[in-house]
């Protein structure tokens, strides 16, 4: 699948406003050739709707506050409701290692904590993209 056909929605499902991480990851993905929709702060239903309307391939979530378990599960639920449960969902932010397994079980494909080099995130997305069927 060609990179510039891959659409990624980047969003913060909570209200918390630390958008530094989301901004730099979005820039890095765009620079790597992806089409990035920068959603900013969106509530889980909005993320589900936008993902469906824009027919994105991936959703990148950024959460810097400790309520990520609940927000992730609500977002995934909304994606399912909008028939977008096939998208790859990535999560960045302050995530405790003890929750990694549970998040992956929920359906998160990749988890990135602060200090992860941007090229590692891009490389991860590249691998996931390559694995997705061409369309």
């Amino acid at each position: 699948m060609v990179k510039d056909r891959v659409k990624i929605l980047m969003a913060k499902p909570g209200l918390e406003g630390h958008w530094r991480g989301m901004t730099i990851v979005s820039s890095a993905l765009r620079d790597a050739g992806y089409e990035v929709i920068y959603g900013g702060n969106m509530l889980p239903p909005e993320i589900g709707q936008t993902a469906a309307q824009e027919d994105v391939d991936m959703v990148g979530l950024s959460i810097l506050s400790s309520n990520y378990m609940r927000l992730v599960s609500e977002t995934l639920e909304e994606l399912r409701k909008n028939n977008k449960d096939d998208v790859t969902v990535l999560l960045g932010g302050i995530i405790w290692e003890s929750d990694f397994a549970a998040l992956k079980h929920m359906g998160i494909a990749g988890i990135f904590t602060p200090g992860t080099p941007l090229q590692d995130i891009v490389a991860f997305v590249n691998t996931k993209t390559a694995a997705q069927p061409s369309r």
Binding site: G14, L15, E16, G17, N67, R70, E74
Partner: peptide, 22 residues
């Protein structure tokens, strides 16, 4: 907390997951 920062009440359905955070 975040709900207070954005000027929403705790019982606003948009904020429930953010109450008491940060």
């Amino acid at each position: 907390d975040i709900s207070t920062v954005v000027g929403m009440d705790a019982d606003d359905p948009r904020v429930s997951a953010d109450i008491g955070h940060a």
